[in-house]
Design a protein around this nucleic acid. Structure first.
Lengths: 342, 342
DNA sequence: CGCCCCTTTGTTAGCGCTAACATCGCGCGT
DNA sequence: ACGCGCGATGTTAGCGCTAACAAAGGGGCG
């Protein structure tokens, strides 16, 4: 008889072997009763279920993951939590993953550090996720190499991607920006400013789209094309609008790359008595819930964020289940929401 | 020679054994070089680090978790993602956990189903988290029993708790509500309404606090004490204020159990030309970023959400490291933010 | 009646790592 | 010269589960 100390275990929890012993079968039968009930006779299945209940058995996904090479976790990499846009995406993702029994591991890349996504990915790979959801399709070479060498299925969210091998669920930020620009033009605006903050690739692409629309109409003015590196906020929107009106009094319309900035602009115009849209029309991006409630309700581009999250997660789990599946792309589009501001 | 198929493994990744073979040492030495570098000679340590790099070795936390009974994950149970308040808490939690190398597993309990938290906890226990962060201290008996039987350390967030064994980081919702009530009274208001939506225990407690303040001042009127089961939103705030003004024209002040409702009320008053605070004073709760930007800036109670998340996570990891530690409570308080609305 | 196939259960051997104990060699004090 | 302590490395076993193969029993069919 050894006197060797028993080694640490997860709080000496009830194991599958305990349940098996209790019922008088082998562990694999318990395993099957839980995972593939149809392969176990009904009588046994009932006795096993009863024993699990009675003993308070909670299966260990850690052991299961090691044995089956399926961790039942999905890593989700997003740039920020402070941006409600990504929260909506997460809500959609969780809806799908909860239903399918996956857990979500979340990683925040930030906007500034170009190497952050790779470091984060490496950290997440330690947890052996069954798949990865990425924001945008502008990943670095290092990130793509890691994904490939670890053979982790991935799906990109919130933008489109020209590369046919890329799995993505999103919409064209370029087209959405262009639609916003054309709407301002259709409103008779000729001196249109473009305001972008937090220069992530998707904001840049929608500004590109808006710019293209202005160029096409022959009224693009680089002096009205503002790029701010700071994080987007209501306060920044107010500040930048004040500067814009002071320096470019002829400006008669603004495309803001997101709604927060537009909210700040609207509040500031309200305080200053600047008539929106008569004097200055404006259009935002994403249609946040407050956009229907600003002093002048905000015309904006609605993006189906929760649907994108939901479908990206669904697509990813399908890809995990069938590695031979050909690449899929889902374009969920966008919708111009016409309110009073433009 | 067996022809048995090799079993599934995590995409045939490089293992610790591969690194050990490459360097010409045993696996345990590699393990030590990574986890407790000071126990391995410097020469070996360098060669091991070099081999890890060259082979692209990423340690498997799944195997590590099984062997060491430490999963390096923390489960966080919150009621909702749509409520920005909890996002702020999550931001704080992630700040701490990222620094300490933990991963976060997130569970959403919702507001309605009383059994949801227990089911969710059970699901999370399958992943063998090293600790659990819970919202509030009103858990069901079943939840407390599960936590006890699995011996998972936990810390409660966002409220205080009278029970001395309970570890918590938060503030007194009751006191915060009372402070809001007293502020309205100090503004000379005598016909004060209390409006609560999404009746979670913390909202209820802050309304209790406000009510106590009104009772103490001898001006509590049950007809002005509104409890709405619906989810809180800007639209609901507008709607309920319209009803309140119509039915109770004498009402001169309102305590809203959160800022969203107050925003809706302010927008509605702006549209209707109702003077805030002259005709109707109002005070919100949580100090969301938009509260400084409403038509009339909102007086509200600031809650240190990110700090609570950060410190709750820190406390939890300390409790994990030292199971003998006595229960800790951190009261981060709250702060009345005086703006124009009251 | 024997054969085959299908359903149901079991045996064996890991998945990749780490706890616990074992061992080895070196410097030091006496 | 000897033993002791200590730092550095190794051996063994096992965490709790599941893949792969094995086997037993029953039923259908020529």
């Amino acid at each position: 008889m050894q006197l060797r100390k028993t080694r640490a275990s997860f709080s000496s929890r009830t194991t599958m072997a305990d349940v098996a012993r209790d019922v008088g079968v082998s562990a694999i039968t318990v395993s099957r009763a839980l995972r593939t009930p149809e392969t176990v006779s009904e009588a046994l299945r009932t006795r096993i279920a009863e024993a699990c209940d009675r003993l308070g058995y909670v299966p260990s996904r850690v052991a299961s993951a090691l044995a089956s090479a399926r961790s039942m976790t999905i890593s989700v990499l997003i740039p920020s939590l402070s941006n409600i846009v990504f929260i909506d995406v997460i809500v959609g993702i969780k809806e799908t993953l909860d239903r399918l029994g996956y857990q979500m591991l979340m990683g925040i890349t930030g906007y500034d550090d170009p190497g952050a996504e790779e470091r984060l990915l490496r950290r997440h790979l330690e947890f052996a996720p069954d798949g990865i959801l990425l924001t945008g399709a502008d990943q670095s070479e290092a990130v793509r190499a890691l994904l490939k060498s670890f053979a982790v299925p991935s799906v990109h969210m919130m933008d489109d991607c020209a590369w046919p091998e890329c799995w993505w669920v999103g919409f064209s930020n370029f087209d959405a920006g262009a639609a916003a620009g054309r709407h301002l033009l259709a409103n008779g605006r000729r001196r249109v400013a473009i305001v972008a903050a937090q220069l992530d690739p998707r904001s840049v692409r929608r500004c590109d789209g808006c710019r293209a629309a202005l160029v096409e109409a022959g009224c693009y003015d680089p002096a009205l094309d503002l790029r701010l590196p700071q994080p987007s906020s209501i306060a920044l929107g107010a500040e930048v609008t004040a500067g814009l009106v002071a320096r470019n009094p002829e400006c008669d319309g603004v495309f803001f790359c997101n709604d927060d900035l537009a909210h700040g602009a609207l509040f500031w115009c309200g305080q200053q008595g600047i008539a929106v849209p008569q004097r200055l029309a404006m259009i935002g991006f994403h249609d946040l819930s407050a956009s229907a409630w600003t002093p002048t309700p905000l015309t904006t581009v609605e993006t189906p964020r929760a649907r994108i999250g939901r479908d990206a997660a669904l697509l990813l789990t399908r890809r995990i289940a069938d590695p031979a599946m050909p690449p899929q792309h889902i374009d969920h589009g966008f919708q111009l929401i016409r309110r009073a501001s433009a």
